[in-house]
Design a protein around this nucleic acid. Structure first.
Lengths: 159, 159
DNA sequence: CCATATTACTTGACTAATCATCTATTGTAA
DNA sequence: TTACAATAGATGATTAGTCAAGTAATATGG
């Protein structure tokens, strides 16, 4: 009780003096993204892969038949990771990914998604799509477009 | 060369069929937040703390003199973490945080930021503020407000 | 007032992420 | 053509994050 009143008073004290809209926006971005990622992680993890591993599989499905070099996968990842090799190790151990050294440039290792990997993604396509749509249902399509465009400009300014 | 052409073709092929604005918005949120967090992590890590540890210190500075129970810190964290105890262990080892078992409720452990912790935060206040402002300078104040309000609605819909 | 439940952490085992360093291969310039 | 540099990725060590189970203290219902 004393606990709860205290906490409330503090909340007021702390939420008032936001340093700036910029700081508040950064906080809002961080909190929202954290919630979203936990939501999606909960969906994919019962299928035996982490969210990062799931993203690798989606990249490989999108890339098609000719094989994708390891570091190109890293480039395309949503969250950049230097641990791409080990991520692929895990996926290969689960037979969701296949790798082969590239004959033309033997420094490269080409990666493909397997049939099992494609099945896993197919199983998750609808749940993930639905969950994402539901998560964003508070915003209209035009609001989403504004959001997307704004974030793109922010990222542009960070390069 | 062949590499580069291929990658471009794929980018076109992959970026066109976004499943929906909702999916695109989620992707944009994830990418933008990842970039922002890397940016801030680079600022705080030279001072010997991780971004999560820095956030703990900020919570404790905001909380004032009466001490904050461990799990209330966890509640207030931007990224929720079950590893709050160990985060505090590290901060205490660096003498940035002080802990004491609460006499009224001996289950609780109250936490305070130390003078050294306050100095560390003071050193980082301007760099962090400037970096945040710069990161968001692509958006006007009213655009930031729209962004903040939109994200708040999204989070509301996720509870 | 006593057994049970709940709260508030803590700990151990495990997994994942990060950094620096290393090897193999290819490109390049003297 | 032969050093030197750059690229692609692997590896080892360290650190951080996560999950499940455990402990101590307090609250609660009969």
């Amino acid at each position: 009780m004393a606990q709860k009143r205290l906490s409330l008073r503090e909340e007021i004290r702390q939420n008032k003096p936001f340093e700036s809209p910029a700081q508040e926006a950064i906080l809002a971005l961080s909190r929202t993204t954290d919630l979203l990622q936990r939501r999606f992680a909960q969906l994919v993890e019962p299928h035996g892969v982490s969210l990062q591993q799931y993203n690798v599989l989606r990249i490989l499905r999108g890339a098609g038949q000719q094989g994708t070099p390891t570091l190109e996968i890293a480039d395309r990842m949503i969250q950049k990771t230097p641990g791409i090799t080990r991520l692929l190790d895990k996926l290969e151990a689960k037979h969701l990914v296949r790798r082969k050294r590239c004959p033309e440039d033997r420094r490269q290792v080409l990666c493909w998604i397997t049939e099992a990997g494609l099945r896993l993604l197919a199983d998750l396509d609808k749940p993930m799509g639905d969950s994402g749509a539901q998560a964003m249902e508070s915003l209209t399509t035009s609001e989403l477009r504004v959001l997307i465009a704004g974030l793109e400009r922010v990222r542009g300014g960070l390069g």
